[in-house]
Computed example of a mutant assay.
Amino acid sequence: MRRSDTGSDTDSELDSVGSSRTGGGPWAAAGANLALGVLATFPGMCVHWLMTEYLPMDCGSQGTRGTGCDPDIFVSASFYMWGAGIGGLVVLALLVIVDVLMPRQEGWPRRLWLGMAVLVPVPFVVGLALGRF
């Protein structure tokens, strides 16, 4: 409490704003992690492509002349590998910032934010279920 110019006791502006802020609740944690999930669709698509297109090829001892070998896939493979690696690292760094460092700095419950991290793959899984990826 501080004394205003008129002589009455009032809360300072910072105290009234700080006490009315309820950031860090379950809706904020869910929204932030779902937004991270939207960003995580790019490395997710890269890993999905690597698992479904690149790994099942049967080149065998015949090199790229095998029946299941497609030489065009070899051209695209490095893009998807780099996309999965770098994109995954970026999403992991953002996940640490949003779910660990930010709640720690603001005094929000970290257990809630870390628990909501399970929502990160939801946009990718929904995209797969709808046949968009």
Results as ranks from 00 to 15, higher is better:
residue 105 Q to P: 00
residue 108 W to P: 09
residue 79 F to Y: 12
residue 88 G to Q: 03
residue 91 V to T: 12
residue 34 L to E: 06
residue 105 Q to G: 03
residue 101 L to T: 10
residue 68 G to E: 11
residue 109 P to M: 00
residue 63 G to I: 13
residue 49 W to F: 10
residue 89 L to M: 10
residue 115 G to I: 04
residue 50 L to R: 00
residue 76 S to L: 14
residue 96 V to F: 11
residue 110 R to D: 02
residue 76 S to M: 15
residue 88 G to L: 09
residue 64 T to G: 09
residue 86 I to V: 13
residue 38 V to S: 07
residue 52 T to Y: 04
residue 70 D to T: 08
residue 15 D to S: 06
residue 71 P to R: 08
residue 7 G to F: 06
residue 25 G to C: 00
residue 32 A to Y: 08
residue 42 F to R: 09
residue 16 S to P: 01
residue 104 R to H: 02
residue 29 A to C: 12
residue 110 R to K: 00
residue 60 G to W: 09
residue 7 G to V: 13
residue 64 T to S: 12
residue 36 L to K: 04
residue 94 L to E: 02
residue 61 S to M: 13
residue 40 A to K: 00
residue 77 A to D: 08
residue 5 D to R: 08
residue 17 V to S: 06
residue 51 M to E: 09
residue 66 G to N: 01
residue 30 A to V: 09
residue 22 T to M: 02
residue 47 V to M: 15
residue 41 T to F: 11
residue 31 G to Q: 05
residue 49 W to L: 04
residue 90 V to T: 12
residue 102 M to Q: 05
residue 4 S to L: 13
residue 97 I to R: 08
residue 44 G to S: 03
residue 21 R to E: 12
residue 8 S to A: 08
residue 25 G to I: 03
residue 75 V to G: 06
residue 6 T to W: 02
residue 99 D to I: 00
residue 19 S to K: 02
residue 80 Y to K: 00
residue 78 S to L: 11
residue 86 I to W: 07
residue 17 V to E: 07
residue 111 R to H: 03
residue 78 S to E: 01
residue 69 C to L: 07
residue 59 C to H: 12
residue 82 W to R: 01
residue 31 G to D: 04
residue 17 V to M: 13
residue 61 S to E: 15
residue 91 V to G: 05
residue 86 I to L: 07
residue 37 G to W: 06
residue 117 A to H: 02
residue 71 P to D: 06
residue 114 L to W: 15
residue 41 T to L: 07
